[in-house]
Every structure is written in structure tokens, then in C-alpha cells.
């Protein structure tokens, strides 16, 4: 592995960590514009994180070490996930270490720790949030896996950077299977990142919240890490979407400084469009009742499996 490949790797991880709150801020800003509100500052998530880091942490009585360790595990899992997602270049040294299935496993690890930590304190809300999160997770995960399988079948590999590379370099063609899985992926993204049809990140309304309910007991640096990890998760999901469905623009093949330089504005452009798209989706859809969430995710699963079947039958 050349030095440039390692540089790409490092750059991608650092970009993910530093740009994730900005992406979250951009989505929130677009959402505010679409809802005729005055938009909060683009840098608000950064300020929130900085403020939280300056505060003293308060731990609930009876909190076990797991509760304190969970934010670091969750944040670490998200950073590790960012290392195997090809956001700018596909020649990543970590490609051989973990493939797309391991990536789903990393997300699952984060989810398990978050839910355990939420139940650790023993408050009603934490348990409620954890159970709902597990319900959403166990329905969303198979759909995500099948989305990845379809792309793997099309490119004959399960390593995400190689999938992106092969999809980007082959002759352009119409893939109904990829179109179906793109719909499924968008639905999984909304559900997994606690966005509007399934969860509303902007409220703390006890009857509907999922993600926020799990974070109620956290404060200061723990909360900052958890929120940063949530932003990072959204960023990671967006980058997985780019790698699977719009892989063009990332530098492929042998590491090349010019291509890498070009891929940076392309990534920022894709993120900007994805932010608008997410905000639009969230604005036009209504929050579902919790008991309707399985239907939403069953639809996502249906789309993913349909994509798989269409690929197997039609070879497209």
C-alpha cells in the first residue's frame, strides 16, 4: 500500500468526523427553510458539542461502568465504520479488514451498546426508548443487508470500496434492481437515523421519541459523544448511499492526487444535494405512529427483496 492510500484513508476518517455535524446542520437548515422557519446556524451542532464538552458530567445513581463506556464504544464504532466507507477514494487500506457485512455489524454493535446503556439506569423512558430502538433495528437491519447483497451480486464482491469502484467504472445501464434497493435504502436511512416518518429528532415528546429517550440520562461529554456519533451515523449512511447508488466522482483505481483533489468538491456537492433531499422527504411525510413503523420497514424490506429477486430473474 502506498503512502497516498493511507493518506486517503486518514483523510476520509477525519473528513467524516469533522464534517458530520456540518451535514446535520445543513439538513436542519434546509428543513427550517422548507417549513418557513428562520434557520438555525449551520454551525449549531458544533456549538452544541463544544458546550457539552465544557460541562461537568453527572452520572445517575447506580450507573454501571457500561453506562460510562457506551458513548466511547458507540463513537468508536461510527469512526470505524467511516474508515471502511469509500467517501472520496476507493483504494482504502482498510478494505481488506472489513467488508460491508462487518459494517452492518458495527452499526449493530453501536445499537446494542446504546440500548444496554439506556436500560442500565432503569428509568422507564430509557427502557422504552431501547425497546423501540431494538424493534426498529431488527426490522431495518435485514433490509439494509439485502440492499448490500444486491449491490454485491452486481459487482461480485462484498467489500464496499470495491463495490463502489466496480459500479462506477462499468458501462452505464438501467438497473431496476438498484432503483428498488435505493428506495429501500432511503427508508432504512430514515428509520435508522431517527428521522421523521419513524422518529422526530427535534422533540422530546415522551410518547413518540425513540432515539432521544435513550439519551435522557446522559450529560456533558457523554452526551456530546452520543450526539456526535448520531451525526456521524447519518453522515456514514449518506456515504454508503453514495457508494452504492451514485459512485461516480470518487477517485477509483490506483491512488492519484488529482482525482482525490477532485473528489472532495464532488463529495461536498453530493452531501449538499442529499441534505436537501432528506429535508424534503422529512417535510412532506408525517410522523408515523410507533405501531405503524413495522409497516414502513416491511415496505423497505419488500423493496429490497424485490430488487434482489428482479436481479436474480432478469439479471439487471
Amino acid at each position: 500500500m502506498s503512502g497516498l492510500a493511507w493518506f486517503t484513508q486518514l483523510l476520509e476518517v477525519l473528513a467524516a468526523i469533522s464534517l458530520a455535524p456540518l451535514f446535520l446542520g445543513w439538513v436542519n437548515q434546509c428543513r427550517a427553510w422548507l417549513q418557513n422557519r428562520r434557520a438555525p446556524s449551520l454551525l449549531l451542532p458544533y456549538r452544541g458539542i463544544r458546550k457539552l464538552f465544557h460541562k461537568d458530567a453527572v452520572l445517575a445513581e447506580g450507573a454501571s461502568p457500561l453506562f460510562r463506556a457506551a458513548p466511547y464504544v458507540v463513537f468508536g464504532a461510527m469512526v470505524a465504520a467511516a474508515a471502511i466507507i469509500p467517501s472520496m477514494g476507493t483504494g482504502l487500506p482498510f478494505t481488506t479488514a472489513a467488508d460491508a457485512i462487518a459494517l452492518v455489524g458495527l452499526f449493530a454493535t453501536a445499537r446494542v451498546f446504546m440500548s444496554l446503556a439506556a436500560m442500565d439506569i432503569g428509568t422507564a423512558f430509557g427502557t422504552l426508548g431501547a425497546r423501540r430502538e431494538m424493534m426498529v433495528g431488527f426490522l431495518a437491519e435485514p433490509a439494509l443487508l439485502i440492499v448490500i447483497f444486491v449491490a454485491s451480486l452486481l459487482s461480485a464482491t462484498t467489500a464496499l470500496p470495491l463495490i463502489a469502484e466496480r459500479l462506477a467504472t462499468q458501462a452505464p445501464a438501467l438497473y431496476p434492481s438498484l432503483a428498488f434497493t435505493a428506495v429501500a435504502f432511503t427508508m432504512v436511512l430514515l428509520a435508522e437515523n431517527a428521522r421523521i416518518p419513524v422518529d422526530n429528532p427535534a422533540t422530546h415528546l415522551e410518547l413518540t421519541m425513540i432515539h432521544e429517550a435513550m439519551l435522557l440520562e446522559y450529560s456533558a461529554r457523554h452526551l456530546a459523544l452520543m450526539e456526535w456519533a448520531a451525526a456521524l451515523k447519518l453522515f456514514n449512511y449518506a456515504c454508503i448511499g453514495f457508494a452504492l447508488f451514485v459512485p461516480w466522482g470518487a477517485s477509483t483505481g490506483e491512488p492519484d492526487p488529482a482525482a482525490l483533489l477532485l473528489s472532495m468538491p464532488v463529495l461536498v456537492g453530493k452531501l449538499a444535494v442529499a441534505g436537501v433531499w432528506l429535508a424534503l422527504l422529512e417535510t412532506v411525510s408525517a410522523k408515523l405512529r410507533v405501531f405503524r413503523a413495522p409497516e414502513f420497514l416491511a415496505t423497505a424490506f419488500m423493496f429490497a427483496v424485490l430488487g434482489l429477486l428482479v436481479h436474480l430473474l432478469l439479471g439487471a
Binding site: 445501464a173 438501467l174 431496476p176 434492481s177 432503483a179 428498488f180 419488500m302 424485490l306 428482479v310 432478469l314 439487471a316
Partner: peptide, 20 residues
């Protein structure tokens, strides 16, 4: 041509989707 087949396949896939 491959494009025709792709379009036909897309129509077929969408038919299946509408059935669902």
C-alpha cells in the same frame, strides 16, 4: 439492443412493484 431489453426489464420490474 441492450437498452431495449433494459427498458423492457424495467417495465416488467415496475409491473411487479405495482402488483405489490
Amino acid at each position: 439492443t441492450s437498452l431495449d431489453l433494459q427498458l423492457l426489464n424495467t417495465c416488467a420490474a415496475l409491473l411487479l412493484l405495482v402488483s405489490f
